[in-house]
Computed example of a mutant assay.
Amino acid sequence: MKLPITIHQAQLGSTKFKVIRPARPLVHAVLNDHDRHLDAYLDQDAAQRIGGLWKLAASSPRSLVHLPMRGNRSPFHEPPEDSTRQLDLVLLHHSLQFAPSRWKEIRRRLGPGRQQTVTLPGPEHTGEVVIDHESRHYQENRDLFHQHLHAETLFMTGSAKVFRETARHFFDVALNGPGYVPVHPSYPHFCTEFHSNDGVLGDAREIHIEYRDQWES
C-alpha cells in the first residue's frame, strides 16, 4: 500500500525529533478515554491508514508517529459521558526512551513539514506475519505495549515486533467492517480489540476498535 505522510522536524535544546503524521487528516477517527479502557471508532479509510501507520511505526524506530484525532466529530449523536475525553495518539519505539512531558513543546514547534509517500506491505500481506502466541505469555516477553497519557495524547510505546504483529487489527476492520454492517442490520457492530489476554499489553489498557459507517456531518 502507498501511504502519503508528512515528515516534521523539531528541536529541543541539542536534541532533534522526527515526527510523522498522515498527509491527510483522519477525519472519521475518534479515540475515547473511558478511564478503565479505550475505545477507537473508525471508518474504512481511517482504519486502513492507521494500519499503515502502525506498520510504519514498526519500521521507523527513531520517529514519533502522530495521529491527530482529538478534534474530530464523534460518530454518535448523543453527547459523550462527562468522564469521556477524546485523545490524540502517538506511536513510538521503546528504544527512543521518549519522555511524554516533552511532547507539548515539540508539538508546538512543528512546522508545515514535507510530504512524502511511503510504500508498505498492504493488508493482503498481514497473514504473512507469523505470530508465536505461546511465547507472548512467557514471563521473559518484552514485546509489549506500554501507555502513557499526557497533553490529551495517548502514547503507545512498543517494539517493532509488537507494532508489526498488531497492525492486523486495523486492516481487519477496514477489510471486513463495510461488508459486515449492511447484512447485520439488527446488530451492525464489527469490532476487534487489544485484549489483556492477548499477551501484547504490559502497562497498558485494553483498546476496543469498532467500525462505524455513520458519522455526524
Score class of each variant (00 low, 15 high):
residue 213 D to E: 15
residue 124 E to N: 11
residue 150 H to Q: 15
residue 74 S to I: 00
residue 139 Q to R: 12
residue 208 H to M: 13
residue 22 P to N: 10
residue 194 F to Q: 05
residue 53 L to G: 01
residue 155 F to I: 06
residue 208 H to C: 11
residue 59 S to P: 01
residue 87 L to V: 05
residue 26 L to N: 04
residue 160 A to I: 00
residue 144 L to W: 03
residue 164 R to M: 12
residue 59 S to Q: 12
residue 64 L to H: 08
residue 116 Q to K: 13
residue 120 L to F: 08
residue 114 R to H: 13
residue 171 F to V: 01
residue 157 T to Q: 12
residue 179 G to N: 14
residue 79 P to N: 10
residue 121 P to T: 06
residue 124 E to C: 02
residue 182 P to I: 04
residue 75 P to Q: 09
residue 143 D to P: 07
residue 202 G to S: 06
residue 209 I to Y: 03
residue 174 A to N: 08
residue 84 T to Q: 14
residue 86 Q to F: 09
residue 16 K to Q: 14
residue 135 S to D: 12
residue 137 H to I: 00
residue 211 Y to F: 15
residue 138 Y to A: 13
residue 67 L to G: 07
residue 119 T to R: 14
residue 152 E to Q: 14
residue 201 L to M: 08
residue 48 Q to M: 09
residue 159 S to G: 10
residue 177 G to F: 03
residue 146 H to V: 02
residue 8 H to R: 07
residue 65 V to M: 07
residue 140 E to T: 11
residue 30 V to F: 00
residue 160 A to H: 02
residue 183 V to G: 09
residue 165 E to W: 02
residue 103 W to H: 10
residue 198 D to K: 05
residue 203 D to L: 08
residue 60 S to T: 12
residue 7 I to Q: 09
residue 155 F to S: 11
residue 141 N to S: 14
residue 136 R to A: 06
residue 78 E to C: 01
residue 80 P to M: 06
residue 193 E to M: 13
residue 126 T to A: 10
residue 8 H to N: 15
residue 108 R to P: 00
residue 213 D to W: 05
residue 108 R to L: 04
residue 201 L to K: 09
residue 181 V to H: 05
residue 145 F to P: 06
residue 130 V to E: 15
residue 107 R to Y: 09
residue 170 F to W: 14
residue 59 S to D: 13
residue 192 T to H: 08
residue 197 N to P: 00
residue 87 L to G: 03
residue 34 H to S: 06
residue 185 P to E: 11
residue 107 R to P: 00
residue 47 A to Y: 04
residue 205 R to F: 04
residue 52 G to P: 04
residue 34 H to I: 02
residue 57 A to N: 02
residue 9 Q to F: 02
residue 117 T to Y: 02
residue 153 T to K: 10
residue 43 D to A: 07
